[in-house]
Design a protein around this nucleic acid. Sequence first.
DNA 1: CGAACTGTACGATAGCCTTCGAAATGAGGG
DNA 2: CCCTCATTTCGAAGGCTATCGTACAGTTCG
Lengths: 109, 109
Amino acid sequence: MIDETHPAAADLRLPKVLAALADPARLLAVRALDRVGESPCTRLQQAAGLTISRSTFSHHQRVLREAGVIQVRVRGSQRILSLRRDDLDACFPGLLDAVLDTAPGLIET
Amino acid sequence: MIDETHPAAADLRLPKVLAALADPARLLAVRALDRVGESPCTRLQQAAGLTISRSTFSHHQRVLREAGVIQVRVRGSQRILSLRRDDLDACFPGLLDAVLDTAPGLIET
DNA sequence: CGAACTGTACGATAGCCTTCGAAATGAGGG
DNA sequence: CCCTCATTTCGAAGGCTATCGTACAGTTCG
């Protein structure tokens, strides 16, 4: 466990992870995070093309973090977000890859 | 497309599929359906160990169907449910397998 | 110090989701 | 034709979720 705000790898649960990934904004954020690598919030939001308010993005970031999908590390005034790829692969083999490899056209309506 | 109540394979969308699978009751139902093979509603509900009302199960069945996860075929007075394995594998390779292969302990709280 | 920047916390709103029971629908059997 | 079995539909209750704006807190920089 990284700290109290992150679940331990052993505490990850499939319904929670799926729920976190089921929102289009969060799904785009996760896929952008995979493409650009670890990024601070604002940069990830831009990379994902999300035109939502900062507070809404912060909410999504929290949902992803509490589900165990991403990890947050503080660097100065910024929070650096990264995928918890190893933990996800260990708990749900193939799941993250399946989500990341899905054709972009199958994401949005 | 099977009929108007089922989405065509080309219309499946990842967020909707993930949302359908994110509910514990639906996730258990899908995993039970994989184990026991196509089944009528009542039998699947028992196989999944779901102690919910018939109307609630019917609601979940509808969500799974409208997301394209399952297929419903009428046989007499019964509805036979089955997984849309081929369509899911074609659209989201590896996703269904990842969900089905997850350890049972990682499903519930 | 004070201004600018990054992000969180709070409170509100609106919509959606799960759940139920009761009533309705439809098939099959006497 | 009625009764039973399988399932859906309806309407309602309660809770959860996404979204926003504003206010706040910590960092960096002049």
